[in-house]
Design a protein around this nucleic acid. Structure first.
Lengths: 206, 206
DNA sequence: GACATAACCGGACTGGAGTCCATATTCTAG
DNA sequence: CTAGAATATGGACTCCAGTCCGGTTATGTC
């Protein structure tokens, strides 16, 4: 999952419309791979699908898969991309309290609730994107965006050490942790949301 | 990592001194395996050592290793066991504020600081024990103990939803997260400790 | 001390992750 | 339209985690 390939597959914004265009065969295979992965994940569950399975089912070589997505966590991240970007758009430019206009603490609470809902809606996929390789979670491009958002809002709210608190907050919202709360402990999403929002308020308080 | 083998290797308390005694050869091999693992981990780093390496170096079959420790995370946990139990003893029966006698919020702060120090001192080993298999962290016997401790102290301090807050607190103290703060962001242990203790206070407050 | 039984041993085996590179395809310039 | 450079392809390959089971060894009993 190097930066170059991340840019190539459109995960990182390119400042200037780069001279590097995706080749036609590459584009075709990317679509095929994502379609196959989505199909297999839906049919058998994320954990039970191997990269070989995806490659075979997509009619593509394994090397292609790895070059493009880096590993299984990259593949999962690519599948999440579209839905993620809806949340990202809402929080960067949508209506308050998620978007700009509301007080920072309120925006943070709204973000946490929305993010939790997102994670919950795609538990296994997010878990895969965060844990397929060691430290994957902290390296994801989207993670950086979530973190940056939290940092800024915490700072605006006047909280001490906003960077560390943003990390601590997101650490509690790991897919594995949420999955544990939801499946092993049988907690409802509403319950989790209100508890986490409460905690968030404490972290954001001056 | 089934319960029977966990008991056999002394990780879970046995109510009555069971009739099941560890066989002499089993005990010998357990010692050999742990010694070999410690040696190899120290020499090459945890990540670069395979279970095969440990088995060969210990003069033991791979099956033996897996039966006894379950997987690499179990092996790491077994190596951490002794040092962990020192912390556990201090927090259950040592002098305050870590041990009983101090106000719950103070005990919790002391625990968090001590636990953070423990994780920091064995970063890679703890990381391995938490992440070698998916969800390993939440299944560890010792994790349950840490969590229970936090739960009780949070409850005594009058915090709402102590169970969830205990999980959130420990999620922030994951070895991967601490490693990131320490190595990628170059934060000092003292800095982390004071920030985390501050957060802990906010979670424990009524 | 010999036997029955339960527990343990260890290495061959399976299957998947990730790498490598000779070949094929696409793009660009002339 | 063509040639050559740049890029992508894909399947064979390596390495390792984890399983399995026939053979071995310890332990309790007579």
């Amino acid at each position: 999952m190097d930066e170059a390939s991340a840019i190539r597959r459109g995960e990182l914004p390119l400042l200037s419309a780069g001279p590097v265009r995706e080749r036609a065969d590459a584009a075709r295979n990317r679509v095929r791979a994502l379609a196959a992965a989505e199909r297999l994940f839906a049919a058998r569950g994320v954990a039970a699908v191997s990269m070989d399975d995806v490659a075979t089912s997509a009619g593509v070589g394994k090397g292609t898969l790895y070059r493009r997505f880096g590993d299984k966590s990259g593949l999962a991240a690519a599948l999440l991309d579209e839905r993620e970007s809806r949340l990202q758009a809402a929080m960067l430019g949508g209506p308050p309290p998620l978007g700009p206009g509301a007080p920072p603490a309120d925006r943070l609470a709204a973000f946490v609730a929305a993010y939790l809902e997102f994670v919950d809606a795609h538990l296994d996929l997010v878990a895969m994107s965060q844990t397929a390789s060691p430290g994957a979670r902290l390296r994801t491009g989207s993670h950086r965006l979530w973190r940056q958002h939290c940092r800024i809002l915490l700072a605006e709210a006047g909280a001490a050490d906003p960077d560390l608190r943003a990390d601590a907050l997101l650490a509690a919202l790991t897919a594995e942790q949420v999955r544990h709360w939801r499946r092993d402990e049988g907690r409802s999403l509403a319950e989790l949301t209100s508890a986490i929002v409460e905690i968030t308020g404490r972290l954001a308080a001056r």
